[in-house]
Nucleic acid binder design. Structure first.
Ligand SMILES: [Zn+2]
Length: 215
DNA sequence: CGTTTTTGACCCGCGC
DNA sequence: GCGCGGGTCAAAAACG
């Protein structure tokens, strides 16, 4: 979890332009304020991403650890599910997929671990707007249940992929108990249909060049 | 009118 | 066997 290329130039102590004119000073102050706001947002996003990664790791660790419930103050004591029962063989032995977390907190994970464990454990986001949207992960979900767990005061939502009539993909979304801004999502299953949505209106602008249409 | 959300009921494994 | 905790169903409502 390294901070790749985040430039933290917090120039709070402005270098004092000393122009005498209050107009330019106010302009500078405004620009400074804008920069600080931007910086603040970036930091918030980064912190959220960090919290997300932390929560993800913690959950995975708890899952791997088994039933060593030595929780001090967190409350996210969720014992693992060793029983190989259930309708789907859930056996996340090495469910350690490396997820690349960009500076925006968008974590995406490769879906090539489907052969071993069909449930891709846990991917988190840190977006308060996620609660309103159905989850902008590029799929259509239909909520089919909601439960409140005793660990977390916030209810947990259960989604199911509604694009294809037969799609075994399910999803659980729950916001962290400590940080309301951290959503913990647990994907389960594998899509057997092409992804209908194209990241919505948030294309990074990093699309590949079209080789078929050079001109 | 079709689809999705809501929400309580139901079910089922598990521990006691 | 029973209670508890969590996952799913399904009827009604809401939304377009
Ligand atoms: Zn699907």
């Amino acid at each position: 979890m390294e901070s790749p290329s985040i430039c933290l130039d917090l120039t709070i102590g402005c270098p004092r332009s000393s122009s005498g004119s209050t107009k330019s000073t106010s302009c500078h102050v405004k620009a400074e304020l804008g920069r600080m706001a931007e910086e603040n947002r970036r930091l918030t996003a980064m912190l959220s991403a960090m919290c997300a990664g932390y929560d993800s790791l913690k959950s995975q660790m708890l899952d791997l650890m088994g039933s060593t419930g030595a929780s001090s103050s967190d409350g996210a004591v969720r014992s693992a599910s060793p029983p190989p029962r259930k309708r789907k063989s859930e056996r996340p032995d090495t469910t350690d997929a490396a997820q690349s977390v960009s500076s925006d907190g968008s974590c995406k994970r490769a879906k090539e671990d489907a052969r071993k464990s069909k449930i891709s454990r846990l991917c988190v986001r840190a977006d308060p707007s996620e609660g309103l949207f159905v989850f902008r992960d590029g799929y259509l979900w239909r909520k089919y249940g909601q439960k409140v767990t005793k660990d977390n005061p916030c209810p947990r939502a259960y989604f199911r992929c509604s694009f294809a009539p037969v799609c075994p993909v399910k999803k659980k979304v729950q916001r962290s108990a400590e940080d309301q801004f951290v959503l913990v999502a647990t994907y389960e299953g594998e899509h057997n249909h092409p992804q209908p949505l194209r990241m919505e209106t948030q294309i990074k602008g990093q699309e590949d060049k079209k080789t078929s249409v050079p001109h």
